[in-house]
């Protein structure tokens, strides 16, 4: 049970890191602000959530869940809001 949970945790965290890596490559390689945001916001939030889920499995205690859920929630909503704000500022600059 414990090893299964640890394996699952490592797997989830690795997957999350892969998502974050894709987000980073997207920011680096994509041509303009909006497509960079597109790559960053989604993959970033998913990656953080997966890493947190993996960390929860690795820690094996439910009391670790509260701070991890709080982290993921904050990253999720701030990522979404920041993406919106950056896109808004970008569009405002373009139409002006």
């Amino acid at each position: 049970m414990a090893t299964a949970l640890a394996t699952l945790g490592t797997l989830l965290a690795t997957l999350g890191v892969a998502f974050l890596l894709v987000a980073a490559i997207g920011v680096w390689r994509l041509p303009d602000t909006l497509s960079r945001l597109h790559a960053l916001t989604k993959a970033d939030t998913a990656g953080t959530a997966l890493v947190a889920l993996g960390a929860l499995c690795l820690s094996g205690s439910l009391s670790a869940a509260l701070p991890l859920v709080l982290c993921v929630t904050l990253v999720g909503i701030s990522g979404a809001t920041l993406g919106h704000l950056i896109a808004r500022a970008h569009l405002g600059r373009e139409t002006r």
Binding site: L70, T73, L74, I77, S78, A80, T81, H84, L85, R88
Partner: peptide, 16 residues
Amino acid sequence: PLGEMVLPFARVVVPV
């Protein structure tokens, strides 16, 4: 003014 997403964001972040 920062648009309509900021107030809901603040509603979550400030109490936290």
